[in-house]
């Protein structure tokens, strides 16, 4: 067979495979990610409001930081106890898009490579899943900062 015939065959096979491959039930998984994601955000808002009630003098920024730190810690604890992934199997994007998903990705990698030791395992692989988020976040936010500096100058 020449290359064209192979390509043609592969294309047809690909089409056939996507016709017979079962797909995720769209509305159900959408609804699951909606309510699990929404609920996570509500819990975040709840933590924020509680800390605001308890410490009215704290600034908005500090309260926000406390909220995300609390959520992160809880998510990591859930990961350690081994049921974050059970929630995530149902929640899909509802559990990886919130900051809790970031925490889960980091701690699961950290735990997984514990067997290679705390230095070469855990410490090396800690960012193996969340690396893209941290790297892209820093690069593009720096770009945003520089653009603002050029456009609007120093305060």
């Amino acid at each position: 067979m020449n290359n064209n015939a192979v390509e043609e065959r592969n294309k047809r096979y690909g089409k056939y495979v996507s016709a017979v491959t079962p797909t995720t039930s769209f509305w159900k998984s959408l609804w699951n990610s909606f309510w699990i994601g929404g609920l996570t955000c509500c819990i975040g808002q709840g933590i924020f409001d509680l800390f605001k009630l308890a410490f009215p003098s704290l600034s908005q920024d500090i309260l926000g930081n406390i909220t995300s730190m609390t959520l992160i810690t809880v998510a990591i604890l859930f990961t350690g106890l081994g049921f974050y992934d059970v929630i995530a199997r149902r929640g899909g994007a509802g559990s990886f898009l919130p900051i809790t998903g970031f925490a889960n990705a980091m701690s699961s990698a950290s735990m997984e490579f514990k067997t290679e030791g705390l230095i070469f395992g855990t410490s090396v692989k800690l960012f193996s899943v969340v690396g893209p988020v941290v790297v892209n976040g820093i690069v593009w936010s720096t770009v945003a900062g520089l653009i603002h500096l050029i456009l609007f100058g120093r305060v």
């Binding site: 998984s29 609804w31 909606f34 994601g37 929404g38 955000c41 808002q45 994007a93 509802g94 898009l97």
Partner: peptide, 21 residues
């Protein structure tokens, strides 16, 4: 407030879910 938090949070997550599917 909580309704809007729930709605917006869920909305972003389901947008990501659509991308996945």
């Amino acid at each position: 407030t909580y309704l809007s938090v729930f709605g917006f949070g869920g909305l972003f997550c389901s947008l990501a879910q659509i991308l996945i599917i």
